[in-house]
Amino acid sequence: MPLLRLSAGLTLWAIGFCAIYAVHGLGCALGWPNETVGPFELHRASMIALWACFTLAGIWLALVLGRYRGSAMDRASMLLAWAGAGTTLVSGLPIVLVPACL
């Protein structure tokens, strides 16, 4: 269990990172930037949704792991969960800053 807790935050980041990268690649290949959902561009909206979900899930995980305060491993697990959430937030920033398929 301690090893799983240690790995949880960054595993979540890794899954989110892969998911966003996959949706980015698929969207560019399938022409999603030209399609809209209501007022939103489908491609960017789907990536923003994923980005927000994984960032919030990372924050939730960090808060949950913050309840365990017994050992150095518990503190490291919480630190890594926050690192995972922060990394998800920062590495996803290009979604709102850069053109998708140029």
């Binding site: 595993t11 690192a83 990394t87």
Partner: peptide, 30 residues
């Protein structure tokens, strides 16, 4: 914690060896 972070994050960097291959800018940004 930093060792574990490196172990994970190092898997999210591979495309920086491919920055000049024509990959879209957003992916380069990630």
């Amino acid at each position: 914690a930093s060792v574990m972070a490196l172990a994970f994050l190092s898997f999210g960097l591979w495309v920086h060896h491919m920055f000049t291959t024509g990959i879209p800018h957003m992916a380069l940004g990630f």
